[in-house]
Design a protein around this nucleic acid. Structure first.
Lengths: 140, 140
DNA sequence: TCTTGCACCTCTAGTCGCTAGAGGATGTAG
DNA sequence: CTACATCCTCTAGCGACTAGAGGTGCAAGA
């Protein structure tokens, strides 16, 4: 069986080398075998695990949530209620974040549109920042 | 003139006490006068500055961007081109973040809907995480 | 065989924007 | 005068990495 170096694992998974070592350090990834010269040597299954972690991180799951999801994956006979709950909680977070960002977007658009490109004392960007009451939706 | 304590400033600005001290430490807020017993005593203008900072933070501007915006506010004869550029950059960031979060939302909805509430080995949440190819939009 | 040069190793410290806590001083109300 | 809240400084911690120092391993070309 061919040895997968950490660099190769990084290339194939899209997770950076120091990040892989970091994941090992926090116990998200189990420590792999080492070569003669003390270099990490990964198995194909480690690549799957790394891909799982990367995908979950891209979806914004926190490390602790990923730790739970990985435990669930390791024991497929468990109920998937936890996985479901974690994903639902994340969905709610994302929905709230989108709503909040849409409000910010409206605010920033107002600011940028109102800017007459003159001097600061007529600048709507500064003015709105200084006076929350001038916001489109003052409730953020 | 009545003295505004740090606690009062916190109450009026909505910025927490340790955060006010932190802003002073990083030079975002100038150090106020002190009372006999070494306690900070703020002026009304400090409250405006704090409100400005708070509002800008709520809109997601980074500390360094706020530092620049405050400098602009302090010198109203400057061109507001910088303020405009900062706000525009922030707007673009926010728009990108919204797009990205909408993609995540679609993904998470798929996962949660597909979950049959059975065992982990039939769970779509785990399955999709393990295999990026099963994503709705595989390009995130 | 030797050397070049990249990839690997460990370890510590830094990033951002706070937040928490220790341990002590001050200010105010009863 | 005594409680008690609020204030002070200082250090360390959070999450999820990232950067850098200082050293070792390894494969390929001269």
């Amino acid at each position: 069986m061919k040895k997968i170096t950490i660099g190769e694992a990084a290339r194939q998974s899209g997770v950076k080398v120091p990040t892989i070592r970091y994941y090992e350090g926090i116990g998200l990834l189990s420590a792999p075998n080492r070569s003669e010269g003390n270099q990490r040597s990964y198995e194909p299954s480690d690549l799957n695990r790394l891909a799982f972690i990367r995908h979950a991180r891209e979806l914004g799951f926190e490390i602790e949530a990923i730790r739970t999801l990985l435990q669930l994956q390791d024991d497929p006979h468990q109920s998937c209620a936890s996985a479901d709950a974690i994903a639902k909680a994340r969905l709610i977070e994302v929905e709230q974040r989108i709503r909040s960002l849409n409000a910010l977007k409206a605010e920033l658009e107002q600011m940028v549109e109102g800017c007459g490109h003159g001097r600061v004392d007529q600048c709507r960007v500064i003015e709105v920042l200084a006076d929350h009451g001038k916001c489109v939706h003052p409730h953020h």
